[in-house]
């Protein structure tokens, strides 16, 4: 349906066409200028990744050193583990935030009681308000080995021995995924709520007349209608698959060395490695590496989406 050109289009002259679209381009102008100033011009910084920056000469005049700044990303024998952690966590986050986000969104939209609806809507976004530092404290409040609520109250009540949470990496995938979902699910959920609210109610009325049950309605109406939002959010997630929430992986496990096997991700590795050195070339190389991988993945995914359904592709 989207390929059908506007009927009006063909009827108007060239001048008319420009006249028709010009106001629309003008509407985009403020945003475009901002994006160029804020995002595109500073992109000259990407070249820093390939330079030995000497500020006394200036960034532009510094020597090119090829890919040397990138070497440190692969210098550690943990490079594999770190990459694996980053990808697996992000994959889990994308899937969980998607599934749980949609489920909660549908639930919330279905709640009849207006007060409760408001309550749920607020509640789900509240964790979003807390900074990761504070979340880190709260997680510590539960899992502190000496004073934590779990070790001090819950496990003894169950007759279990205390667990050394911060010394044992095996628990952390679960904890981190839980914390991320707890904190982040509201974001997607709110988008889905907006999308569901935007669905034309006549669809449902028609379905109800046809005698379609709840599940069928979700499958045939709700999901297809919010599919564009799902695709947008997922593709954005895929694009950032090599990035990770630094706070989640650094503040929440409290930088405990014994947990690195399951908590070390690219961002924390870069931070720890460069904390003392402050090498601008290397940190920018890390960013470029993360971006390029994400970019390629998004291009591929977008291509796949285009093949399946053209109008749902991101670009």
């Amino acid at each position: 349906m989207s390929t059908k050109p506007g009927v009006i289009d063909r009827r108007i002259s060239r001048f008319g066409r420009i006249k028709k679209w010009l106001p629309l381009y003008l509407m985009m102008l403020p945003g475009a200028i901002y994006i160029i100033v804020n995002n595109y011009i500073p992109m000259f910084g990407i070249m820093i990744a390939f330079k030995q920056v000497d500020f006394s000469k200036g960034i532009f005049a510094s020597d090119w050193i090829g890919l040397k700044n990138f070497e440190f990303l692969f210098a550690s024998e943990d490079a594999m583990i770190i990459t694996r952690n980053t990808i697996l966590y992000n994959a889990a986050f994308i899937v969980l935030n998607l599934v749980i986000g949609i489920i909660f969104a549908i639930f919330i939209c279905d709640v009849i009681n207006k007060r409760l609806k408001k309550l749920y809507q607020s509640a789900i976004l509240f964790p979003f308000l807390m900074s990761m530092v504070i979340v880190g404290y709260i997680v510590f409040a539960f899992f502190s080995m000496q004073n934590g609520i779990v070790n001090k109250s819950i496990l003894p009540a169950l007759g279990q021995e205390p667990i050394f949470w911060y010394n044992d990496p095996q628990y952390w995938p679960v904890i981190l995924i839980f914390v991320n979902t707890w904190k982040g699910v509201g974001y997607g959920c709110l988008i889905y709520i907006a999308a569901i609210n935007g669905i034309d109610p006549t669809y449902y009325e028609a379905a109800e007349l046809d005698g379609a049950g709840k599940l069928k309605q979700i499958w045939h109406i709700t999901l297809p209608c919010i599919l564009p939002s799902i695709i947008t959010l997922t593709l954005l997630g895929v694009g950032r698959i090599f990035y990770s929430d630094f706070g989640l992986f650094y503040q929440v496990p409290r930088d405990s060395g014994m947990l690195y096997a399951t908590t070390n991700v690219i961002d924390t590795y870069v931070y720890r490695g460069l904390m003392r050195q402050g090498n601008i070339g290397m940190s920018s190389a890390a960013g470029v590496y993360q971006s390029v991988v994400g970019f390629l993945l998004v291009l591929v995914s977008n291509l796949v989406v285009r093949k399946i359904s053209k109008e749902n592709a991101l670009f």
Binding site: N39, I41, P42, G45, G239, G287, V288, S291
Partner: peptide
């Protein structure tokens, strides 16, 4: 439309880093 969308999306993946942004 596609080009402009890409123009927007591209900024989500690539950035020049803090220092260039700060200089700007």
């Amino acid at each position: 439309r596609r080009v402009i969308t890409f123009f927007v999306f591209f900024t989500m993946l690539f950035n020049g880093g803090l220092v260039p942004s700060y200089i700007m």
